[in-house]
Design a protein around this nucleic acid. Structure first.
Lengths: 204, 204
DNA sequence: ATGACTTATGGCACACTGTGACAGAAAGGT
DNA sequence: ACCTTTCTGTCACAGTGTGCCATAAGTCAT
């Protein structure tokens, strides 16, 4: 990896961290692009070359998580019930956050706090979640051997899985640690699996 | 109702219809507030006194639907399983669209077409859906006799119900009629109810 | 009707977001 | 060193959204 790419990655993360801190410090709405750019010592124009806007910064984790979910799902055995595979994908997302680097763990927790304080951001995350659902639905449909467009059950499976994710993610306590989130997510997965009829996601 | 309020309501709907037509005609992004205001012969400034922005216009139906869901849920018997009540609320939304006025029916279908063409709008609808979920969760928690904040099952019930709504709403065919949407929603409700264990939403 | 009161509207200025175009700087390869 | 590719900053511009204030329209007394 050349110097160029390393520098770009460094800038991308510097913007992310500066923005996150500013958002938490003085509020999301009242933080301007100019301030963020100033803190990283780049021009506002350059900011837009790394992120499409303020929103995009706040959704950094979402893109990351989606990638992991898709990869995990693809790696699960083809004869496993799709919802079960999706629950494994959920666990994989948290495993990744907890495991990789302390920096990412901190960013994750900052984003969680931010979303609690600003429901609009949580909404945006859901909005992007819709695109994620679409991609997951394609994968699930392929495994089920049906066309994604006209199989309602496929979409229902994915929708239920994403609901489970959201409920597990929205730990109500603001002083929550990663461990708390992890545990809540685990409880939530158990709750969801216990609510559904065995084999419900294998029907035609 | 005085002349003032009637006139306001008329303006509000005139803006909605003009905006919807412009969106479908020349695309959502490339339609400006100025154009909409021009079509209704009001100043751009006044537009913002009726709607908070272009997005808000596109979410007209959502606000309407949420109101109906909340009212329907509140009107269901207190000993009915909450998920069942929510499914009734879903049906009530469609009943209302189909029943009331031809104008609203047309607006509903225009919005559906618009959302299919512009996934971003569907996302925004989901974003607002998050606020709706919050309000529904409060109602469901009250019926279950628990605190909304720390009862995960409450949120799961609402989340599953909203997933069902979304899947039913996203009829894939763009030439769909109201009847098609209605039928698809009915199928989807049946599918969801058949996927869940009886009594799952009554547990503690 | 007339006047006084309340509310809606239009016009203006302003800050912020986001994008295209272009010139100069930095990095890569030879 | 040279040329090529890519990144960066500056400028200009269109659009969104809000505060402010004067004016117009509606409401409600007498």
């Amino acid at each position: 990896m050349g110097l160029r790419e390393r520098k770009k990655e460094k800038t991308r993360l510097a913007i992310l961290d500066a923005a996150l801190d500013l958002f938490l410090e003085q509020g999301y709405e009242s933080t301007t692009i100019e301030q963020i750019a100033g803190a990283v010592e780049i021009s506002p124009r350059t900011f837009f070359r790394y992120y499409t806007g303020k929103d995009h910064v706040a959704l950094w984790f979402h893109d990351h998580g989606e990638q992991i979910m898709l990869e995990t799902f693809a790696g699960r055995p083809a004869d496993e019930p799709p919802f079960t595979s999706l629950m494994h994908a959920l666990r994989a997302v948290l495993n990744d956050v907890e495991g990789v680097t302390p920096e990412n763990e901190e960013r994750f927790m900052k984003l969680r706090r931010l979303m609690e304080e600003h429901p609009r951001l949580m909404g945006l995350s859901m909005a992007r979640g819709r695109a994620t659902e679409q991609r997951l639905a394609t994968a699930v449909a392929a495994r089920r051997g049906v066309a994604a467009d006209d199989d309602q059950l496929t979409h229902l499976i994915v929708g239920f899985a994403m609901s489970t994710l959201r409920v597990g993610f929205e730990c109500p306590r603001s002083d929550a640690t990663i461990g708390d989130v992890r545990q809540r997510m685990a409880e939530c997965i158990e709750l969801a699996e216990g609510s559904l009829r065995p084999g419900w996601d294998l029907r035609r």
